[in-house]
Amino acid sequence: MRMRRLPIRPLAGLTTIGVLALAGCGTQTSGSTSDPGGPRADRTIRAQQVMRLTQAHQETGMTLLEGPVFDEDGRLLVVDVTAPAGAPKVLRVDVRKKTSEPVHTDDRGAYTSAQFSPYDGRIYLTDFAHGDIVSLAPDGSDPRTFFSGEVDGARMNPDDLAFDQEGNLYVSDSRGMSEGEARGRVVRIDRDGKDATVLVDGLAAPNGISFDADYRGLWFSELTQNRVSYLLLDAEGSVASRHTALRIDGGVAQTDSIAVDADGNLYQGLHGRPAMAIYSKNGERLATVEVPARAAEGLESATNVAITPGGTRAYMTVSGPDGGYLYAFDAPAEGVRQSNGG
């Protein structure tokens, strides 16, 4: 998640600034073209517009869609990070009918991701501005604060999250982002919300986070370093090893959220350009997902993607001055939990 027209994402200041300055259709492919992740891409995947979900809010001056996740009925939930109090902060979309309805709002949260827990089936939201993790019933009712407070003496700025198979949470904590300091962390919170452990610290605005296809380790991106790292985990969920896996040459674009499909391919969202880079688990650049050139001028980010579970239709959240949109394309492999929310 990333906000518009700022060199770094000053989300930590969301509680004090008036305008937040954060972080479906057919597919065409073409030959080699420029790619945000390297010198040349093998192919370009042309995403097609499904629908516009939101417009820039008068109160915040912008809109920013994030956290797409399918529910059990095949409807897509999306968060609007910059929605003001009273406006829908979580929306439910029928991608076939191209309709949407509000699910949740409040007067406080700036929600940057959404995902269903495999443990209790509730929707979990990260509130970047206040350091909380909030959960909702599947229909959007019964809001609860799942986790709040300090972790190792400092409050989080939770950005994205991933669940392991037992329902424990792994959170990218982007603290230090607004100051441009490498004070970010990856935090593990047990499924009861009682114990929180810092797995890695000293990170440069960590953003995207996802388990690999086998749940052996975590991929995470650092927004202000444009790199993706891999954490191999042990049986207790602690770090066994860590290495830099990808360096993204994004130019004006920065690394946003991450999704992983059934083949282990990484979908790296970009802020600063309405595009998404796809890599194999071995670092091979497979493709770049682009919106049509005629639409790209009014759009500034492609933050995240949800791939239909068991299918290959992918829905990408794209935002900019022209509004918040869903774009669709055909993914190289089927969707799994790791490509559905977070």
Rank of each mutant, 00 (worst) to 15 (best):
R227T: 02
Y327A: 04
D322L: 06
V200Y: 05
A85Q: 04
L231A: 06
V200A: 07
P36W: 13
V291R: 10
R4F: 14
R52L: 01
L6P: 02
V305E: 07
R144H: 12
N168S: 10
T308Q: 14
D71S: 03
L286G: 09
V289H: 11
G67H: 03
I278T: 12
G131D: 12
N282S: 13
R2I: 05
R175W: 14
T197S: 13
S32Y: 10
D106G: 00
G193L: 10
I45E: 12
E66P: 03
P36Q: 02
A162C: 05
V289D: 02
Y279E: 01
I307H: 01
R216N: 15
T27M: 08
A162S: 04
T317Q: 05
R285D: 09
D73A: 14
A204S: 15
G121C: 06
R191H: 13
D160I: 02
N304D: 12
A314C: 07
A275C: 04
D190M: 09
Y315A: 04
A21H: 09
L65A: 00
G320L: 09
V171P: 11
L65R: 05
I209D: 04
D106W: 01
D106N: 13
F116C: 03
M316G: 00
S172I: 05
P292A: 12
F70E: 06
T29C: 06
L76H: 06
D195I: 15
D173I: 06
V171C: 06
N282H: 14
T29W: 06
V336Q: 00
E236K: 08
V103G: 04
A235E: 15
D73H: 15
E179T: 13
Y230E: 03
Q165G: 08
L326A: 00
K97Q: 15
T145F: 11
N207Q: 14
D106A: 02
V151N: 00
Y325Q: 00
D80S: 02
H243L: 04
M316R: 04
L161S: 06
C25E: 11
D132G: 03
L169E: 14
S174I: 01
T15F: 02
E66Y: 11
V291K: 08
F147T: 03
S141N: 12
A47Y: 09
H271L: 02
E59G: 02
R40M: 13
L233T: 11
G311Q: 14
S229L: 12
G323Y: 04
L266M: 15
V90N: 05
N226G: 01
N265W: 08
L20Q: 05
V81E: 02
R46C: 09
A205H: 13
M1R: 03
R175H: 04
P332W: 11
I45Y: 15
L14K: 09
R313H: 10
G298K: 01
L14N: 11
E66T: 05
G251M: 10
E166K: 14
L77I: 00
S32D: 07
E236V: 03
F128R: 03
V50L: 09
L299F: 03
E101T: 14
F329W: 13
S241K: 12
R9I: 10
E166Q: 12
D263V: 14
R43H: 15
T16F: 11
F146S: 04
D160S: 15
P102Q: 01
Q268P: 00
R188K: 15
A296I: 04
G176A: 05
D80A: 01
F220L: 04
D195K: 14
V103Q: 08
